[in-house]
Design a protein around this nucleic acid. Structure first.
Length: 423
DNA sequence: TCTGGGGTCCTAGGACCC
DNA sequence: TCTGGGGTCCTAGGACCC
């Protein structure tokens, strides 16, 4: 019988911000999304103030001020680095680890004696080595381990570790879990299920599996089985190959002007191409989209989108930018005020296995193009992401660039931002 | 004034081929 | 009057996750 543990960092981004500012201990902390748009992480104190996940920041500004909430723009350089440290501790301690997201990992503890005390020891180890608090849920399936983890987080009596597999009556926990809180059940399915009288995870497992399969596809059926203790999802230690690369942003102010949108799309395409090369991949197609604001019904709405297929797979920034701008010509409509745009690269294949094609350039020209991209990436790695950019790409001082007024220093990834002790 | 960004998977339906 | 069938590939849309 398999045994899974889910290790999840508590309020991860908020915990990261607190790490180098001991003065924030016990104070409410929130972290905002890109563009300082909405709340994406909250310390327990912030949760206690009733600030919901996803809350638009501007609506809560008065609470932030009145309650002395420490507010941060998101600082992914910091979170990514601390995440890697947490994962390293897990990998050193556990036999098999699947890094599931920036703040979560599944462990396979099938052969481990005394799994619960193993997890308690592991939990302390992570805190000792990284300063990040974590919770651990144990169960026979990944979906149940998620549930166990929620319980470990919410119930202080668990001491941050909860073993559902050792419980004599696991149905009690299912009965206490709202269906929308089950991993894989989103708001749409929760609503449909509610209409059928399903309020809890226990109600759900009592539905006939055939019905679930029909109404919620094989994905729903797997959730059903996993909640019943039948493991369908295995530990994935090697990350699956990427299928797409996306770069999109909301703008600090609406864009009506075609030229400005071209600049933005050019920057996004160039950034997407960098990510592509970093992963050693080529793209076969470039998709561009431009959207008007979702929450402004008084404005005319438009969702423009176009896909351009490349003559042959490439990771060359100018090719990708050119294709993106062609796509934009189709997606863009004069007279609308756009709030967000993006470039997505599709049909990814490893550059190493690139097929020779009749449309390919002669070898010496290919080498020159390759060398150019190598230099571009090298300079930008050494001197910052915008050090070298294509002529069409937006200058960083454009007014519609995203807002990030409250970003903390890059304490762990930038020499200039190292925390100072004893000042 | 102000509501994120980056991913995955599944299915249905159309195009296309033989 | 009557107009095949089966397979594959691609895409769009929907749903979900963190």
């Amino acid at each position: 019988m398999p045994l899974f543990a889910l290790v999840d960092c508590n309020n991860f981004y908020a915990s990261c911000e607190r790490l180098f500012r001991p003065g924030l201990k016990g104070r409410p902390v929130v972290v905002l999304s890109n563009n300082d748009g909405c709340v994406i992480a909250r310390s327990n104190e912030a949760k206690a103030l009733g600030i919901p996940m996803g809350a638009p920041a501007f609506q809560w500004e008065h609470v932030f001020r009145r309650q002395g909430v420490a507010v941060f723009s998101s600082n992914y350089a910091l979170y990514g680095d601390l995440s890697a440290r947490v994962m390293r501790v897990l990998e050193e301690a556990a036999p098999a680890v699947e890094v599931y997201s920036i703040d979560e990992a599944f462990l396979d503890l099938s052969g481990v004696q005394e799994p619960e005390s193993f997890c308690r020891e592991l939990r302390q180890r992570v805190t000792r080595h990284t300063g990040i608090p974590v919770s651990v849920g144990l169960a026979r399936t990944k979906t149940l381990a998620k549930l166990a983890n929620r319980h470990a987080k919410k119930q202080p009596t668990t001491g941050g570790v909860f073993d559902l597999a050792a419980l004599p009556d696991p149905e009690a926990l299912l009965a206490a879990t709202e269906i929308g809180d089950v991993w894989g059940i989103g708001p749409r399915h929760a609503k449909r299920l509610a209409a059928r009288g399903v309020a809890t995870a226990l109600d759900f497992i009592r539905l006939p599996r055939d019905w679930v399969r029909k109404a919620m596809t094989v994905v729903g059926m797997q959730i059903h089985m996993e909640l019943c203790g039948i493991s369908c999802l295995s530990l994935e230690q090697a990350p699956p190959p990427r299928r797409s690369v996306l770069c999109s942003r909301s703008f600090g102010q609406l864009i009506r002007d075609r030229e400005h949108l071209r600049e933005a799309v050019c920057s996004f395409a160039a950034r997407a191409a960098e990510k592509l090369r970093a992963g050693g991949l080529d793209a076969q197609a470039v998709q561009v989209f431009a959207l008007t604001p979702r929450h402004r019904e008084e404005l005319p709405q438009h969702q423009g989108q176009a896909t351009v297929t490349l003559p042959c797979p490439t990771d060359h920034s100018p090719d990708i930018v050119t294709a993106a701008l062609r796509g934009l010509e189709q997606a863009f409509c004069e007279g609308f005020a756009y709030q967000k745009a993006g470039v997505q690269l599709l049909g990814l294949t490893p550059s190493a296995s690139r097929q020779a094609s009749l449309l390919d350039l002669p070898p010496e020209q290919r080498q020159r193009r390759r060398a150019l991209m190598d230099v571009l990436d090298l300079v930008n790695r050494r001197h910052g992401r915008h050090a070298l950019r294509l002529a069409l790409a937006a200058a960083p001082e454009r007014p519609w660039h995203m807002r990030q007024h409250r970003r903390s220093p890059r304490y762990t990834t930038s020499w200039d931002d190292l925390p100072r002790v004893g000042e």
